[in-house]
Amino acid sequence: MSSPFDINGGACVAMVGKDCVAIACDLRLGMQALTVSNNFPKIFNFAPGTYLGLTGLATDVSTVSDLFRYKVNMYRLREERHIAPQTLANLVSSSLYERRFGPYFVSPVIAGINNTTGKPFICGFDSIGCIDFAKDFIVSGTASDQLFGTCEGLWEPDLSPENLFETISQALLSAVDRDALSGWGAQVYIIEKDKVTQRLLKGRQD
């Protein structure tokens, strides 16, 4: 429990549907067992339809999200276009590997729809940038075991945006309810080609 990954708690999950993707996180911020805030979202927007979720050590969640805001802004100014989720994935990977022997204690998750191909994309990373390209779902955070169980049980291919929302929400809520370090509400993004829906879920407040 003294692992930096488990001090603040938190969970994040991304899922692929039919022409859509979803990413969701809990809202808790804690110091060990003590909850400090119930409004600490862990998903950050980097381009229209491109999101990055970060779980792990809260100070690194903030640092890394700020670092990528800077890097992605520089990318957009240089390239005069939005960053694609695949490009962001490689940026995240190489940036984390730069800190190979003194890593940021975060487990990032990317979800987005590629603007040129229109294809859904999700991926996850370990804290030193190894990319996990998954076709179904990505989980991260202190509730990752629980999320693996619920996602593996509830997810199916080609879900519509509505069904994907229901699936990811049920998977996340049920998972964080079995993790003492996650929960206290959730935030869900459903990403379609030209539309993003953001929803706040109340969830259990204990």
Partner: peptide
């Protein structure tokens, strides 16, 4: 070993938690 994976699924599907 896999209780942490199975139990939340059961909460959801048997005890209909969060539904």
């Amino acid at each position: 070993a896999a209780s942490s994976l199975i139990m939340p699924f059961l909460d959801n599907q048997v005890n209909l938690k969060n539904q």
